[in-house]
Design a protein around this nucleic acid. Structure first.
Lengths: 227, 227
DNA sequence: CACCATTTGTTGAACATTCATTCAATATGG
DNA sequence: CCATATTGAATGAATGTTCAACAAATGGTG
């Protein structure tokens, strides 16, 4: 049921596998390329955000999580704020690339494209406890931090426009009566709301039930296409 | 279009109007009843959460916002954590009372009850920038703080059950084909997702457009009742 | 009513802790 | 040997909490 839309792996998990991890204490102090270290620290930041939340995430915790020393983060990122921005940017890029790939794989049929976009949202590589928790941590701080705002809603204006265009196309071919913008807003809001439930760890919501709910919406809104 | 379902006012805003505010510097040092002070400090906490976010909310900022001295919060709440829990509890109680009142005012017709619940979610007294921002601030920390978890999803298990029951009733009378739990999850997730959009301050989403989207969902899912 | 004692509320400075940042010393790889 | 990466202790700023002193209300008593 939950087919993987794209086999994308996070580059960082690859990077981690060739560098120091908790077990390899003897590798501490080894030099690694700048990009590898940065990814390693970004992954450790996501870990910390997921485990402790935004407010409790400290530089020391990130460094410990990466198995490196205290001063290292400032060397690679200058400041805590820049580390967090880089982390957010990393997650944004990953999400962005993921749905674009999914859209491409769907081919030319608009109904299929919309279905693939919905599936992409619940793909394991994107939609897992660790990353959802990190997203939520950023969302909580986004409104009061101008720097975060542009990046913090993973679904940006362009993504929204794609949804609107797809809804408009389906409306024509199916003879539905609603405004494309309105139904697109309802749909994308529901996807975010389902994410929110998954993040909060409410018992009654799992990736499977969330996907069911999303499909129920599609069937209700576009009965000719998903009936 | 946006009719006020309930004329409820926050007790705290009443309380504030009879106690010291920024202008009345001469009233500083005056004693006030315990309950009034607590509400005053809780309101100042919501202000701070909305303005600065969770991580940047400090005891000093709360005290300044209330026009009182630094040590006062510990006197009334013992610790910062207890102040935040009391604030969350206050918001939870307010939300809870609000939707229950709305449900009561709807009368016996299930379609009307569901419509009133949806309206209640976008009522100004609940759904305004200040309070939404405070909710989001708590959500961001909820997963990593067990104490927050029970209170942080304003829509609790009972609320969800009411939705499911209403969907089940509508299904029978309208001859729809989906599972009530699934469509109820889709609906409540969409409401939360719309809140999220409003919180984030995305330009294309206002209280009016959010309500339109919610109504579009109702019309799509229950055409016999809201067509 | 006036007076004083007691309780209760409030203040702001002092304290202890946590944490981001800096940097001189050291290690590593080329 | 040089450039670069890494370490970890030192530093200073921010902040939650404590508390002794003070002020205001309360209530009892003559």
């Amino acid at each position: 049921m939950l087919e993987t839309v794209t086999p994308m792996k996070t580059e960082a998990s690859d990077a981690l596998s060739e560098t120091a991890q908790k077990g390899d204490a003897e590798k501490r102090g080894r030099k690694a390329s700048k990009e590898v270290r940065r990814l390693q620290l970004i992954e450790a930041t996501i870990d910390s955000l997921a485990k402790r939340g935004y407010a409790e995430t400290t530089m020391a915790d990130v460094a410990d999580g990466a198995g490196l020393s205290r001063g290292i983060v400032n060397f690679h990122f200058e400041s805590k704020e820049k580390l967090l921005i880089a982390t957010l940017q990393h997650m944004y890029d990953e999400y962005s690339a993921h749905w674009r790939t999914a859209l491409q794989k769907a081919g030319d049929d608009p109904a299929r494209q919309l279905q693939y976009l919905v599936w992409a949202d619940f793909d394991r590589s994107i939609c897992n406890k660790r990353k959802l928790a990190a997203w939520l941590a950023f969302w909580g701080e986004a409104k009061s931090r101008p720097t975060y705002q542009a990046l913090s809603s993973s679904r940006d204006a362009y993504y929204q426009q794609v949804f609107i265009d797809l809804c408009a196309t389906l409306k024509e071919s199916g003879g539905y009566s609603y405004e494309p913008q309105v139904i697109a807003l309802a749909l994308s809001a529901m996807l975010e709301g389902l994410w929110l439930r998954l993040m909060m760890g409410t018992e009654d919501t799992t990736r499977e039930t969330a996907l069911q709910a999303a499909n129920a919406f599609l069937a209700a809104a576009f009965p000719k296409h998903y009936g």
